[in-house]
Nucleic acid binder design. Structure first.
Length: 782
DNA sequence: GCACCTCGAGTTCC
DNA sequence: CTCGAGGTGC
């Protein structure tokens, strides 16, 4: 009896679905690809002829819906977790020991699985039907990529019900979408042949494919999926263990990695780590480690969470991938401070997912330690999985006739002598003001986001401005107009032989230059700390600039302050104070500041000096800060008690210092020091400035902030605000926000994807706040 | 004088 | 992220 169209459509769906399941879940393909395609086309034809036959779980939908425009936000019913990381056996041992300690289980059982290098997603099934899929996002909110996920054949559009017991009313499945290596390579071969952009690595390929606005594009990408955990479940009894949950998922038709096992205790998980590590290269997909999850759900619940990471699971990462390549040349860069940094140019090599061609060698000592020479084969890895680094050379592959590398004697940019101070590690170009490389870097720093934040003023344009003599100092930037920038870019393009598209089309684009001029205009309004940081004074980074601004409050006072006064600011000592003084002593630098002010740069947040300065504004403190030999703080105090002010002190005969209680040699030392005119002037100038600061101090005490004296560290990604914003808010309450966790850290604010800092805080027993706690705290303070 | 924190500076790739 | 070195407390 011939089938009706609805019957045939149902049968086709079953056949196609079955083929998918066998291929992706059971890993035993049953029908040839051509046969599969034929079934799919037949079903599509039936559905086209009679749209009522089209069901929401039809495999024909996998070809992709119409482009959606953008992705909607999806709240995860149960947050998607991140995992703590372990990079060594010792860290794993600590993890296991903690679990043994806290659960009382001598030999805890773990469910162990590879850590797939793809994109974490969540799939939602309602009454067995795939209704929504979302990216992980920040863990709480992801992006709706349902249409794209529908095209992934490994993802069932309808759950199976193997024993007829029914499927859960709601099932959220978490897992990883990844791109198999074979598919990745095939795609790149195709891309190369068709002029499309090849993918950097399978992981980026998977991520990029899922973020396609047009699902039809995603449908053509070779994506696959493994499920590894549960989210929200309604209408089913949860298995007691994670391994049983995975078996259940597999029975519902979801692909679960065949490499999942159970392992007992530390020995068990480490054995698994080594076996998977050995098999890693032979796997058809990339993995970057293995994951250990305490198997018992009951024990998991006992252990709970730290921030967003469960305390019952950990990712044991493989060591950073290392690769060999050949050194083509060793070059040097000249930085803003004149520091000459050697780096290697290498033949391109794939390491940890990206192509690497250069790596820094830091300094001459490092080059000597490694003994890197041009022509050497070297091992490269990505430190912390990001920054390329030369690990060592392969001595047996060294060609004949190489010689050790030597620091050039002259600066490649200006020809000045390169000098290395005794005891210093860095070599510096002595060209200072004449060196174009230092000038370019100084300008680049001035314009950088954390300084004056001039968007669009990139290194290449700055290089052209300097090379063609348009800009000598940072103040010159404020004289340039749209035409100047357009002309500079034209000449730079001409010189470098790069012709932009717009010129080929016969037009000259000026919009970017207008934006740039507007950005420069905006930068005329600056806070004192940004301005000080932007000047690029040696040893004055963001943090020091902020402290200086907070304590002195006013640019004019800082410009005129003799250097010993800078030591009143916490964390500024002799070296930094003298560097500041040296900078301000240069007439050229003062002229640049004058020129900036004349160009309309305005400090928007001038304020009186900090009341916290008050107790330091004494003659005793000043004498102690001057660095007079043999004058200890105690002796400085004796002098200050004996003489009312600096002028009186200068009038004294040496024996009066002895009368004041100083030992002979200290008295002689200070008398000798004061007899130098320059020293006497410094003392008087500093005393005068102290008086000026005292007079400018506001009445009363500094307002006490709730976080005064508390050091806070922020890590991970916050969803409600940027890190900078959180930092500013905490600082407004008196906290000191620092970058590294130590014993002194008051508490750590941990956002999503917190890494080593969270681990360190846990190790040190430092209080950890999640974002909700931070928000609640900020709310309570406002 | 030493140990321990921090900060500054330079850096890679997409 | 890493290294070097400045600042500070013991």
């Amino acid at each position: 009896m011939p089938q009706t169209a609805p019957q045939r459509a149902a049968e086709l769906r079953r056949l196609i679905d079955d083929a998918n399941h066998r291929y992706h879940v059971l890993d035993e393909p049953a029908i040839p690809d051509a046969e599969y395609d034929r079934l799919l086309r037949e079903l599509a034809a039936l559905e086209a002829a009679d749209p009522s036959l089209l069901t929401p779980d039809s495999p024909t939908l996998r070809v992709g819906d119409a482009p959606s425009g953008k992705f909607a936000a999806v709240q995860h019913a149960v947050p998607m977790l991140s995992l703590g990381n372990a990079f060594s056996d010792e860290e794993v041992a600590e993890f296991v020991a903690r679990i043994v300690r806290e659960t009382g289980e001598d030999a805890p059982v773990f469910s162990v699985e590879p850590k797939f290098d793809g994109l974490a997603i969540s799939l939602r099934y309602e009454d067995g039907l795939f209704v929504r899929g979302a990216t992980r996002g920040d863990g709480a909110t992801g992006e709706d990529v349902t249409a794209n996920l529908r095209t992934v054949k490994a993802i069932p559009l309808r759950l199976r019900d193997p024993d007829g017991a029914g499927v859960p009313a709601v099932l959220e499945v978490r897992g990883e979408v990844y791109m198999p290596r074979a598919g990745f390579e095939a795609y790149n071969a195709w891309a190369l042949a068709h002029g499309a952009k090849p993918m950097a690595n399978p992981r980026n390929g998977a991520a990029g494919s899922l973020r396609q606005l047009d699902p039809a594009v995603t449908a053509k990408r070779p994506l696959a999926f493994f499920a590894y955990s549960l989210g929200e479940v309604v209408g089913a009894r949860l298995p007691a263990t994670h391994s049983e949950a995975l078996a259940w998922l597999r029975s519902l038709g979801l692909p679960v990695s065949p490499l999942v096992e159970c392992a007992t205790g530390l020995d068990g998980v480490l054995d698994y780590y080594r076996r998977i590590g050995a098999a890693r290269d032979a796997l058809p997909y990339d993995i970057d480690g293995v994951v250990y999850k305490l198997d018992s759900h009951e024990l998991q619940a006992d252990l709970g969470f730290v921030s967003r990471a469960p305390r019952w699971a950990i990712a044991h990462k493989f060591p950073a991938q290392e690769e060999a390549t050949v050194v083509e040349s060793i070059e040097v860069n000249v930085g803003r401070t004149g520091a000459v940094t050697p780096w290697v140019l290498m033949q391109p090599v794939h390491v940890g997912g990206v192509t690497v061609t250069r790596a820094t060698l830091h300094n001459a000592d490092q080059v000597a330690r490694l003994d890197v020479r041009v022509g050497d084969s070297v091992i490269v890895r990505r430190a912390g999985d990001v920054i390329p680094e030369v690990v060592r050379v392969i001595p047996e592959r060294r060609p004949e006739g190489t010689t050790p590398w030597r620091m050039p004697e002259r600066c490649p940019a200006c020809g000045s002598e390169i000098v290395r101070e005794a005891g210093e590690v860095v070599a510096r170009c002595s060209g200072e003001l004449v060196c174009p490389a230092q000038r370019v870097q100084g300008l680049f720093h001035f314009a950088s986001r954390r300084a004056m934040d001039i968007e669009g003023l990139g290194e290449r344009l700055i290089q052209a401005l300097v090379d063609f003599g348009q800009v000598q100092s940072i103040a010159d930037l404020y004289r340039l107009g749209v035409d100047d920038f357009v002309e500079m870019k034209r000449r730079a393009d001409e010189r470098d032989g790069t012709t932009p598209e717009t010129v080929k089309a016969g037009k000259v684009a000026t919009k970017w230059a207008e934006n740039l001029v507007a950005a420069i205009e905006r930068s005329r309004e600056a806070t004192l700390e940004r301005f000080l940081f932007a000047l690029g004074i040696e040893h004055v980074g963001e943090s020091t600039a902020k402290a200086l601004a907070a304590w002195f409050g006013d640019l004019d006072r800082i410009r005129r302050a003799p250097w010993p006064l800078f030591k009143r600011v916490p964390d500024i000592g002799d070296e930094v104070a003298r560097a500041l003084g040296h900078f301000l002593d240069q007439p050229g630098n003062q002229a640049v500041i004058d020129a900036l002010l004349a160009a309309g740069v305005r400090i928007t947040d001038a304020h009186p000096p900090s009341p916290k300065l008050r107790e330091g504004l004494t003659l005793a403190q000043l004498l102690a800060d001057l660095g007079i030999p043999k004058l200890t703080p105690l002796r400085a105090k004796q002098l200050a008690d004996a003489f009312p002010d600096a002028a009186t002190l200068l009038d004294q005969e040496p024996h009066n210092f002895v009368i004041a209680g100083l030992p002979d040699e200290a008295a002689a030392s200070i008398a000798g020091w004061l007899s130098d005119d320059a020293n006497a002037r410094l003392l008087l100038a500093a005393a005068t400035m102290q008086a000026e600061l005292l007079a400018a101090l506001p009445e009363g005490e500094a307002a006490a902030g709730p976080l005064d004296g508390v050091t806070v560290v922020i890590t991970g990604t916050l969803e409600s605000m940027g890190r900078d914003e959180a930092k500013a808010k905490l600082e407004a309450l008196g906290a000191k926000v620092s970058g590294s966790v130590s014993k002194k850290t008051g508490f750590l604010v941990a956002g999503a994807e917190a890494g080593s800092k969270l681990a360190k805080a846990t190790e040190l027993g430092i209080e950890v706040w999640d974002e909700a706690r931070l928000l609640a705290f900020l709310e309570a303070q406002s």
